[in-house]
Design a protein around this nucleic acid. Structure first.
Lengths: 136, 136
DNA sequence: TATGCACCCTCTAGTCGCTAGAGGGTCAAG
DNA sequence: CTTGACCCTCTAGCGACTAGAGGGTGCATA
């Protein structure tokens, strides 16, 4: 049961693109792995777990900086959970705001779409609604 | 009375930053205006109307390319409104998907936050939940 | 053994939609 | 005549990747 992975295998196992993994290494998010004799990156289980963590947090919409923060906390397991809770809650609030914004926007768009007369653009109320008083 | 505007006035009138207006000119979204003797941009009413259109569409979340498309359609006033309707609906669909994604995400985060035992990180299920998909 | 192809490497530059700064020129009020 | 707000161009930066050039490596198959 060899835990050695090429970058391609790691990518496949985590649903990440190869280039993204190299990028994460470059910005110091994922530690640089050992290299094979032919200079190939050789990843271990620790990398798989860490990258899974990163991907999951990214999928949940945490920024790279927030992920860094979360990982820092996760690595200090004696610390209080409250710091982690705070980050998650901040993020939850941001999502609440985003949903509200998008919902309002969807309403506006719906009004626009409903107003489409389906005649010529000259009569198109979407175009009309997007412009100011009169078009030039 | 053709009202001439400096870039600053145009920015003020449309709620756009000066740099953004120059950027729109650079990418060909807003036509380059005439220049004064001292090389200042001098905008006309047409620019004001076109920029208002752009800003409104951008505020509604249309991409620059979509705005370009919409403006191209608006300029051909004999054409059918349906093409405009299609673009608006595509955008509406994208927003619907985004809202659904964010809602699902909010639910996941809520579960994560609720599960936080508020003890040490060792017990913190937020960190746990962010770990590898299959428990390792 | 040769060959073909998928994979790996580094490095650079591009994406989107701006935003910020350097380093200068112009204009109008006091 | 000076001050300070405005204007100009050019370049680089943001976040989070993504794409491509130009090359090396590993393994299966003919």
């Amino acid at each position: 049961m060899s835990e050695k992975l090429t970058i391609g295998k790691l990518a496949g196992a985590t649903g990440t693109k190869v280039e993204t993994i190299r990028y994460y290494e470059q910005i110091g998010l994922l530690p640089a792995p050992a290299r094979s004799a032919s200079n190939y990156r050789t990843y271990e289980g620790t990398h798989l777990r860490r990258l899974s963590f990163i991907r999951r947090a990214r999928d949940l919409g945490f920024s790279i900086d927030q992920v860094r923060e979360l990982m820092g906390l996760a690595d200090r397991r004696d610390q209080s959970c409250i710091a982690v809770d705070v980050i998650a809650n901040q993020h939850r609030d941001a999502i609440t705001r985003k949903i509200a914004d998008l919902t309002a926007l969807a309403g506006e768009l719906d009004a626009l779409i409903d107003s489409c007369s389906r005649n010529t653009v000259a009569d198109c109320r979407i175009i009309e609604a997007l412009g100011p008083a009169a078009s030039a």
